[in-house]
Design a protein around this nucleic acid. Sequence first.
DNA 1: TATCGGAGGATACGGCGTATCAGGGCGTTC
DNA 2: GAACGCCCTGATACGCCGTATCCTCCGATA
Lengths: 230, 230
Amino acid sequence: MVVWERPEPPSRPVLAQLSRERIVRAAIGLADADGLEAVSLRKIAAVLDVGPMRLYGYIATKDELLDLMVDAVYAEIRPAGDGWREVLRSLAETTRKAVHQHEWLADLIGGRPQLGPHALARGEAVMAALDGVDVDAVMPVVAAVDAYVIGAVRREIAERRAERATGMDEQQWQVAFEPYLQRTFATGRFPALAAVVRDGAHLDADQTFQAGLAFLLDGIEAHVRRHADN
Amino acid sequence: MVVWERPEPPSRPVLAQLSRERIVRAAIGLADADGLEAVSLRKIAAVLDVGPMRLYGYIATKDELLDLMVDAVYAEIRPAGDGWREVLRSLAETTRKAVHQHEWLADLIGGRPQLGPHALARGEAVMAALDGVDVDAVMPVVAAVDAYVIGAVRREIAERRAERATGMDEQQWQVAFEPYLQRTFATGRFPALAAVVRDGAHLDADQTFQAGLAFLLDGIEAHVRRHADN
DNA sequence: TATCGGAGGATACGGCGTATCAGGGCGTTC
DNA sequence: GAACGCCCTGATACGCCGTATCCTCCGATA
């Protein structure tokens, strides 16, 4: 269990006083630069020029630090615009943008309940912007949009990484991967799948995200309308 | 990059011959019992009564093993029923059921492109069942359903774990968590959020999942109809 | 100035993924 | 049937991780 509120240890007058915030910022810096697996308490401590065990005066556990990192990013996520549809659309879009800026977020998002101050503030902003909507509908609706966004950005980042991994190493992609799929399709075991891949439209990442989001919002719209009619 | 096809090392006549499959089954057993963080190559090797390094004759890396674990579970996921809506609904439902049976899957699903044989077979089954649908629409539609399911089950499992963690330790929940939220709401900083939590309907996990899925399928239905009209 | 408390850092422990290497059992070849 | 050589196998080891423990030293207090 995360302790969201933790009194800062009383400060002696030291330059560059350590703090939860500085620790979290350092961790985010490492994660942005080299991915989540580059985040270790030892490396964070080194960046802050401090012994590893110092950090335990500010955080209880590495998992807590990860929660704090996620919460820090939630500070960037706010809906904008007028009307419930635009609010939800912009909520989804800014979330996606935050994940693009912090790819490691794709590994963490949705993995734990988010109850930190910034996540709650995001929730408040969303609820405030949706105050016209039926109070019984708003929670499932927001949950649905959140769920879609979480899954969509995870898949998107997963694909991006795979492309990058093989792109950095064009050789590997050529020699290991493409032939595998071609061989697999050539076996004829997956005719319907092969047909869709061959004949279907290929949307890029933006279009795919927006198409799925549009489906969801259309469905929500039908529900909202139905309710407004009663 | 995962090597999905790997020739089994030629077998000497040994009882209980090692194999990728036995390794993956052992890993899944450990993960089912004690969670993903209980899966280590050393423990798997111990279960199989083998030295840790033996495993490297069958898998290249631990990440590859995790991919194989996920792919193995994909073997259980198949859509059923008639009509695109029922196909997609059952696809979502069986995926959710698989995650319930293997909670660790919530940590991995969507985290990497799934191109293993069972994932492809699932794709084939889905595409075959949707063969009436516009070939250009089917990929975005399936992607949207997958994204929703991934996000929804992650959130669901995350909540379940949090409840379990505090439930096992009723004390902690009482002394650490509930008061935090109450205090937080009592500050009045989140009035709209507090109002929704106070006044809104509270759906259980099943209802929440199905409500969100219904939104999405309704939106897809509108799209499919619109297209059929042209 | 003497005492005390607590913060800070060094050290250590157990576990991890995996590289390396020596040894030995087996199939192969003369 | 004997010698050879290869590869499978297990042992050992390395570097990293999260974090428990403990000791030291410093600053505040009496």
